[in-house]
């Protein structure tokens, strides 16, 4: 069985994101970039599936500019077998991303497509679901536990009401939630080894997918700031403050 894992390059989750003075975007120059943490969890799960002998090959995919090689190499160092970069300089919305992944699926015929439930930059939470729709295959989103048996996957999903269990036939799209696993640390020898693993670049145009986006971002601004409050010195003072606001 083959597993395809898609990795998005995002501003590292520890970085405090700042908007450019002209509001045209966020500052990326000199900012640390990483694999979207949810995607890293998806890759970790794929690696564990292979380590259990339930999969043979793991392919990591990124869509974007050449700088994405960095994240793909990290994926290879974590243990993926080979990498594909779908190259485009345009920052694509989830629908064209899903269309590109769909073409790769036709080429590679994986049984599982895994990715994070959302990327921490645009917080869209869409790509996996869109891919499953275009492919006409099952989706298991927000997954915190995954078991494979006889051509099916049983997924425990983190939903608002608790944990939902569903069973899907393979091939299927799985999107990972935070508690699925804790990704491994990459060791130096693995980084060296990863440099020799195959990384193929395919121009987006070669996949026959349009890079046309549907939405236009016309401005970016910081959220409304809360007024800084006060420190109270006792529980009694806190209760009084709440009573003054009619909240206790």
């Amino acid at each position: 069985m083959k597993i395809l894992v898609s990795l998005k390059r995002v501003i590292d989750y520890n970085v405090r994101v700042r908007i450019k003075p002209d509001g045209s975007g966020v500052i990326r120059d000199g900012v640390k970039m990483s694999i979207n943490p949810f995607d890293e969890i998806a890759l970790e799960e794929a690696l564990r599936i292979r380590e259990r002998g339930e999969a043979q090959e793991i392919i990591v995919v990124a869509i974007g500019g050449q700088e994405n090689q960095q994240q793909l190499r990290t994926g290879l160092a974590m243990g993926a077998d080979r990498a594909i970069l779908v190259e485009t300089e345009i920052e694509l919305e989830p629908l064209p991303i899903a269309r590109a992944l769909k073409v790769l699926i036709e080429r590679e015929a994986p049984q599982l497509i895994m990715m994070g439930k959302q990327a921490i930059d645009n917080d869209n939470n869409q790509t996996g679901q869109m891919l499953a729709a275009l492919w006409d295959r099952p989706q298991a989103t927000f997954v915190s536990e995954l078991t494979l048996t006889d051509g099916t996957a049983t997924a425990v999903r983190e939903v608002d009401a608790g944990l939902e269990v569903i069973k899907v036939e393979l091939p299927a799209v799985i999107t990972s939630d935070l508690r699925l696993n804790e990704p491994r640390y990459v060791k130096l020898p693995e980084i060296m080894k990863a440099k020799k693993k195959p990384l193929e670049t395919i121009p987006l145009t070669e996949l026959g997918v349009s890079s046309k986006n549907q939405f236009t971002v016309i401005s970016m601004e910081p959220p409304a700031q809360r007024q800084k409050g006060v420190m109270v010195d006792s529980v009694a003072a806190l209760v009084q403050a709440l009573r003054d606001r009619g909240l206790a």
């Binding site: 919305e93 629908l95 899903a98 869409q126 996996g128």
Partner: peptide, 17 residues
């Protein structure tokens, strides 16, 4: 979040979250 992107893709359109 689970449903609407699937609806959008079937319609061939993007989605706003």
């Amino acid at each position: 979040k689970d449903l609407m992107p699937r609806v959008a893709a079937l319609l061939g359109v993007g989605q706003l979250s």
